[in-house]
Simulated assay, not measured.
Amino acid sequence: MYKFLEEITINSWPAKYSALMNGWLVRYTDGYTKRANSVSPIYLDPGCDVDGSIAAAERFYRDAGQSAIFKMTPYVMPSDLDERLDGRGYIQVDLSSVRIVDLAGETPPAADPGLLVVFRDRLDAGWLEQMSLMNEISDRGQSVLAQTLASTPLRQGFFLLQQGDETVAAGLGVIQHGWLGLYDIVTHPGYRQRGYGFQLIQHMQAWAREQGAHSSFLQVIQANEAACRLYDKLGYRHVYSYWYRVLK
């Protein structure tokens, strides 16, 4: 039912290099993030050699200098791919939840005179620096991320939430087909448990509604209990799980 969300997430987070392999989408972005350096096997050419395709993907990533990674969802093809990868020595990591919420009728964010929302519709150095500082992203990672985010024609919103001279939260919104995708949501470690993440996302949702978005989705690692509690509070409901299989 939600296979289209997989397509949206692929489009929202472009890869430096993408190639079709018997229907599977093979993506590579210098090793930055699993989502942009993995196989998305949601389509498959009928009658193809599945084990041969797995071996070809392994050769591709070996030549690129990284382990082969497959993103596993309820929509993988063939349906026994997870078992096949397990048999080849792949381990399961990063069990995650895809969540959605209807933006219609959402409460507008309350005005807070002590907070300033800084919005940019294009990536700028200030947002990248502050978000990367809070997410502990390396200089190399920042360089790859900047190239990735600059390569898409999709509508983007870059948000910072500031209290005085301090940036307390940051996030990225990407709109496609009426859906707002939330990425890189982070709160400054010294300002957590104060509702800043909640307020940040409310502002992002308000912006998306102004752009005509009707729904929102996000992806969160299920072991991140604090983030899951925040998204529960915002009304995001779980619709399916995914995980990665990594060759060791």
Rank of each mutant, 00 (worst) to 15 (best):
S132T: 03
G171T: 08
V101H: 06
S40W: 13
D82C: 07
V118G: 06
A111D: 12
A150C: 12
V39F: 10
D82L: 09
A104E: 15
S53L: 03
R59M: 01
L172Q: 08
S96L: 05
Q162L: 08
E166Y: 11
Q156I: 04
Q142N: 11
W179S: 11
Q163I: 06
S97D: 08
D86P: 09
D80I: 06
S79V: 14
R140W: 15
G141Q: 05
W179R: 06
G65V: 01
V101Y: 04
I100Y: 11
A104Y: 13
A64P: 01
P46G: 02
G114M: 10
L123W: 04
S97F: 05
A57W: 01
L149I: 05
L85H: 03
I91H: 14
Q176W: 12
D165H: 13
L149V: 05
A170D: 08
L103E: 06
Y61F: 07
Q147G: 14
G157R: 05
R120T: 13
C48H: 07
H177K: 14
S67E: 07
S40V: 14
Y43Q: 15
D82K: 10
R122W: 14
E129L: 14
A55D: 00
F158W: 02
S96M: 06
D45F: 15
V76H: 08
R120I: 11
D121E: 14
A111N: 11
D102T: 13
G173M: 03
R88Q: 03
D80W: 10
Q92N: 15
G181M: 01
E166M: 11
L128S: 05
D86W: 13
V118S: 10
F159T: 03
Q147E: 14
V98A: 08
L160C: 00
G181P: 12
P78K: 05
V117S: 10
G178L: 06
Q156W: 09
V168E: 00
L44T: 08
P74K: 00
Q142G: 12
V76N: 10
L180N: 05
M77P: 11
R62P: 05
A57F: 01
G47L: 03
W179H: 11
W127S: 12
G164E: 03
S151Y: 03
P108W: 11
V93I: 12
I69P: 00
P153I: 11
P153N: 04
D82Q: 06
L44H: 10
G164F: 01
I54E: 00
P46A: 02
G141S: 09
V76A: 06
Q156S: 03
I175R: 12
Q92M: 15
R59H: 01
R120S: 15
D82Y: 06
Q176S: 12
F70L: 02
R88M: 04
F60G: 02
K71P: 03
T152M: 07
F159G: 04
A125Y: 13
E136A: 13
L180T: 09
G178E: 08
D94R: 08
P74A: 00
Q162G: 04
D51A: 07
G141E: 09
A104K: 14
E83C: 10
D139C: 13
P109Y: 15
E129F: 15
A68S: 01
Y61A: 03
F158P: 01
D49L: 00
P153K: 04
L172W: 06
G157A: 05
Q130R: 12
R88Y: 05
A146H: 02
G181T: 07
G181C: 06
R155V: 03
A150V: 10
R140P: 09
A170E: 08
